[in-house]
């Protein structure tokens, strides 16, 4: 039995210049908001951009973008939703609406293949992929299907988050997966710079980046009234989060794709 979608996926992805995967081993760190605002920022800068929400069970990119979802239009496949000029979007959410999505691993893989095989993106400069938390099926499938993927790892100053994110960085490093760098979200004035309970090591994102020889791309301050920005793309772009991400994306667009090497000084919001 041959799955014809696999050849189609490869063909469709070949039309995309760069694939940026926003990932974290921990949930609630701001992957979706960073991915959505990065996509907005790239399109605003003139790049043809796609945003793909791969977090089937916790799809939320459309909420940040304020997009009303209906069934996609069909034309030799399904057309992604046009969010803004040069920005298209696809997700599982149009098919599940606000209902729970109880999928096991193989179902996740099947849904991912289907979505990649039937979505007809225009030729893109960037595809931004919003991942679910963890190092599960979705990450393994991205590594399997998108061998040109470049990871951007989202973290926070929390010592717990850092210790979990380190596991993702270790896996990416061991697999020699290109990592553009790390974005520290929700940075507070009193950013922790501390040792664990045994006093063995330093728990800070700058130390983690250094330890894994990866670049800390920038730090986004904690925004207490974040909910007021949700669903308002223009307000998001003008916020401190949007401005910090704009600087980060600007540096990324000046860089040749698919590189493991550090390439820019960090950006602080």
């Amino acid at each position: 039995m041959i799955d014809p979608r696999l050849v189609a996926v490869k063909k469709k992805l070949s039309l995309i210049k760069r694939i940026l995967v926003f990932s974290s081993a921990k949930g609630g760190v701001g992957k979706s908001i960073c991915a959505a605002v990065s996509a907005l920022s790239l399109s605003q800068a003139g790049f043809r951009t796609g945003l793909l929400d791969m977090d089937f069970q916790g799809a939320s990119a459309h909420i940040f973008l304020g997009t009303e979802l209906c069934f996609p239009e069909e034309s030799r496949g399904i057309k992604p939703f046009r969010i803004k000029e040069r920005l298209d979007f696809m997700s599982f959410a149009p098919f599940s609406r606000e209902h729970p999505v109880p999928l096991r691993g193989n179902d996740v893989t099947q849904a991912m293949i289907e979505l990649l095989a039937i979505t007809v993106w225009d030729e893109l400069d960037f595809l931004v992929v919003d991942m679910p938390p963890g190092i599960g099926d979705e990450v393994l499938d991205i590594l399997r299907f998108m061998n040109r993927a470049e990871f951007i790892v989202i973290t926070t100053p929390s010592g717990v988050v850092i210790r979990v994110v380190e596991r993702l960085l270790e896996m990416l490093r061991n697999l020699e997966v290109p990592v553009v760098g790390i974005i520290e979200n929700m940075k507070t004035n009193e950013s922790p710079y501390r040792t664990n309970s045994c006093g063995e090591r330093n728990l800070s994102n700058s130390y983690m980046a250094k330890r894994f020889q990866m670049k800390l791309l920038g730090s986004i301050p904690f925004i207490p009234d974040m909910d007021e920005l949700v669903g308002r793309p223009d307000a998001l772009l003008c916020s401190i989060l949007g401005l910090t991400i704009k600087k980060i994306m600007s540096a990324i667009t000046r860089q040749r794709g698919n590189s493991c090497k550090s390439f820019l000084g960090g950006v602080n919001g």
């Binding site: 599982f92 979505l115 039937i118």
Partner: peptide, 12 residues
């Protein structure tokens, strides 16, 4: 229609 597009929507 949802299942037609994405059979995994059956689980929904």
């Amino acid at each position: 229609e949802a299942i037609h597009f994405l059979p995994e929507a059956a689980h929904v």
